[in-house]
Design a binder for these strands. Structure first.
Lengths: 96, 96
DNA sequence: AATATTTGGTTTATATTATAAACTTGTTTA
DNA sequence: TAAACAAGTTTATAATATAAACCAAATATT
């Protein structure tokens, strides 16, 4: 009746990050930080967790001389997101 | 862009409990436990939190000689649930 | 030129949370 | 009457989210 919710995605910030990455080809740290309103520390930690899970990839490079961290969602991350949304709908579709 | 999610509802078990109570007039402890698959301890704690928040009410009585705990959602709980669902949709409606 | 500030993060610490394990009280059954 | 069961509650633990503190390099200021 109530399927388990992937704990990696059932987190406000991680869900926002993955949701954002679903809608764009890539996004860098600063942009994600702006869009989500997260603190750097929190974002850094959550990006690490998503990376460790294989849900996103991180590429570190430079924009001019400044460091730049670019994130992308992986096919596995897309699947996980879709699964999470599907599961969640069992919770929020009242009276069905 | 990503609205805050009510932390009281952003919990797998509490969300299941509230979701369940949205769909019925009332439900007792044992029934909720069956439907959610939760352990008694966990359910007891989460029911307390929802009660403290004013999202549900708890009525203790007896069915014959056995104790019975009946839960109902409050108007405030209904509002909170609706708000949570609305906020959540910003996260799961990709590409909109 | 030296110093201060900003950028782009990482690491570490803390406070909260979810969850399970252990316990309690009373009831039914063998 | 003793064992098992019902219906929970309380307490302990492990995981989590989050913020605070820190760091290195680049840029701006005096």
């Amino acid at each position: 009746m109530f399927p388990a919710l992937d704990p990696l995605l059932h987190s406000e910030l991680r869900l926002a990050v993955v949701s954002l990455l679903m809608s764009v080809d890539e996004a860098d740290f600063t942009y994600i930080k702006e869009q989500t309103g997260a603190t750097s520390g929190n974002l850094s930690v959550q990006i690490d967790k998503l990376t460790a899970a294989g849900y996103i990839t991180v590429e570190k490079g430079f924009k001019g001389k400044m460091p730049r961290t670019t994130c992308r969602i992986t096919p596995s991350g897309m699947e996980a997101f879709k699964g999470y949304v599907k599961a969640l709908k069992k919770y929020i579709a009242v009276g069905k």
